[in-house]
């Protein structure tokens, strides 16, 4: 028995060292920096609450994450539904159409939007060609650009999670509902939709949590008015060199992530056990 214990410890040791030294310990440093100077102090938090900029950015980040999540779920769900209800032979090919953009890095997908929305970009060219506008209009460095790109980047995650729940739904249940007199619409609303909700919840939670921490897309596509929490942390570190303030902001972001994760666990307790 003790040999088994020793073996388990030995197997875990490298992982514990890696995660301990380069994940937990540094996070602890952030906590320390925001709460101690050198004794315990809430000065940084007081500064946070008194800072209109920080409060505005926090509110903006939360609203953006929420908007992007709702948009991704609403637009992604029918796509997942289409995939799940198409013939198995087509399905495998069609799923790759969703995975293809998903496999490309966020930096590159953000860059593609710079090309599409730029002054000389496609959208401006088309709009001018059709005569809808006279000169190039400002699309880059706007909230619209950030929203479009983030939905495009995160929607595949929502689609894939919804889809994998949907294909597990027993087709017989839908047929039973139809046999019992339900219209296709009713069968969908009363049987299929509720059964697919766990996938929607997982996809939405992942989308929301990832949105909260988005850095690259707002930095490249958004203007000054689209600075998000991650960008503000970067700014405090590299421009104002105010590390304790950056640490407090990081702590807020961490807390928001954990709260979102906790809420999700609470709402969806029926999770596959991980262990």
């Amino acid at each position: 028995m003790s040999r088994k214990v020793a073996r388990t410890i030995l197997l875990l040791a490298p992982g514990l060292i890696l995660i301990g030294f380069l994940f937990l310990f540094p996070l602890f440093g952030v906590l320390k920096l925001s709460l101690f100077n050198p004794g315990f102090t809430t000065a940084s938090f007081e500064k946070l609450v008194a800072s209109p900029v920080a409060l505005l950015v926090m509110e903006r980040t939360f609203i953006l994450a929420l908007t992007v999540t709702v948009l991704s779920v609403v637009t992604g769900y029918p796509i997942a539904y289409y995939l799940a209800t198409s013939s198995p032979r087509w399905r495998t090919i069609l799923v790759y159409l969703i995975l293809l953009p998903f496999w490309t890095s966020i930096l590159i997908r953000t860059y593609t939007w710079m090309v599409v929305l730029g002054r000389e970009g496609l959208v401006n060219s088309v709009l001018q060609w059709t005569g809808l506008i006279d000169g190039p209009t400002q699309l880059l460095f706007t909230g619209l650009a950030v929203h479009l790109a983030m939905v495009q980047i995160l929607m595949p995650i929502v689609i894939i999670t919804c889809y994998s729940t949907m294909i597990e739904i027993d087709e017989g249940l839908i047929r039973a509902a139809r046999t019992l007199g339900a219209t296709p619409g009713q069968a969908f609303a009363k049987v299929f939709l509720p059964l697919s909700l766990p996938g929607v919840a997982t996809g939405a939670a992942m989308c929301f949590i990832l949105s909260l921490g988005f850095y690259i897309t707002p930095a490249l596509l958004g203007g000054r008015r689209n600075v998000m929490l991650s960008n503000l942390i970067d700014f405090e570190v590299h421009q104002t060199l105010n590390w304790s303030f950056a640490s407090v902001l990081a702590l807020v972001l961490l807390a928001a992530t954990l709260v979102a994760l906790g809420l999700f666990r609470l709402v969806a307790p029926r999770r596959r056990d991980q262990g």
Partner: peptide, 20 residues
């Protein structure tokens, strides 16, 4: 804990590692 780096906003880890 070991899969947490996947969910944690990257900028937090970036700041933490930078300080360290």
């Amino acid at each position: 804990l070991m899969v947490a780096p996947l969910i944690l906003p990257t900028v937090i880890l970036a700041l933490a590692l930078y300080i360290l």
